[in-house]
Design a binder for these strands. Sequence first.
DNA 1: CCTTGATCTAAAGTGCACTTGAGAAATTAT
DNA 2: ATAATTTCTCAAGTGCACTTTAGATCAAGG
Lengths: 144, 144
Amino acid sequence: MSGLTIGDLSTRTGLAVSAIRFYETHGIVHPVRNAGGHRRYDKADLRRLSFAMIAQRLGFSLADIAAHMAHLPTHKAPSKTDWSKISKTMRIDITERITQLEKLRDRLDGCIGCGCLSLASCALYNPSDTLGALGAGPRTLLTD
Amino acid sequence: MSGLTIGDLSTRTGLAVSAIRFYETHGIVHPVRNAGGHRRYDKADLRRLSFAMIAQRLGFSLADIAAHMAHLPTHKAPSKTDWSKISKTMRIDITERITQLEKLRDRLDGCIGCGCLSLASCALYNPSDTLGALGAGPRTLLTD
DNA sequence: CCTTGATCTAAAGTGCACTTGAGAAATTAT
DNA sequence: ATAATTTCTCAAGTGCACTTTAGATCAAGG
């Protein structure tokens, strides 16, 4: 009657019980304890976990997600406004990721596809535009 | 005179020496040994490593990459045709990834953005279209 | 020739995101 | 009341992609 069990969350989110406990250590959920020391969750925690799962699929690390969710109230249900604030800031990151992926794909077509991969003039090695968000990448590749 | 050293590859690709050795254990490069037991690389290995780095940025695991590169000749420089065959098959995967990301982003807008995140009717929990490629995801999220 | 720097191997360590295992206590079902 | 199930904690293990460490050997410049 007073809150959901970790098993309830598990069946309703599809997450393993161990994963939910793990997420707690990262500040994604903040259950309270009942008399026997068992975790009791709020319905809002279903949203928190679902949001975390989706954000992970979008390529965010748990640390990223926890940082974003730190802006939500800890022990009361976040409002629609709370959620939409977060999703708006994340949307920017997502769009950036998509853009980078598209750029890399197009370059793969034009550059690897044609076999020029190692030429200094190759767009893939042009250091002028930062691909830093997706990794370090080749810095200098002299003539082959 | 007979081939590039691992240090040469490191400075020209930006990869750590240890990473290049690690990639060798995964079949990305196949250096030969000189009289003293040191690795000697071919120019074509620059392309192999560069390709691997780019593919990683595109979200491929080393195992994926090694599998794709298994179709290249091991001890002679791959032809343009060899490379373009690989990039064509990878392009399909990349486009799929981008499509999934876009779908998720759009749903984030329409679904998390509006706060409905936990409704059974939410498009994010619609199991009809497989998001399996990007992870397991929530299976059932009953009414909240 | 000799020193300095690069490379060698093998094993252990790192960070992320979890899972597994063990033994005990709480909860639920019969 | 008893059995079955769930949950608890804490430590250790897993897989990926590497890095670090240690001690030894190789190669190159003065």
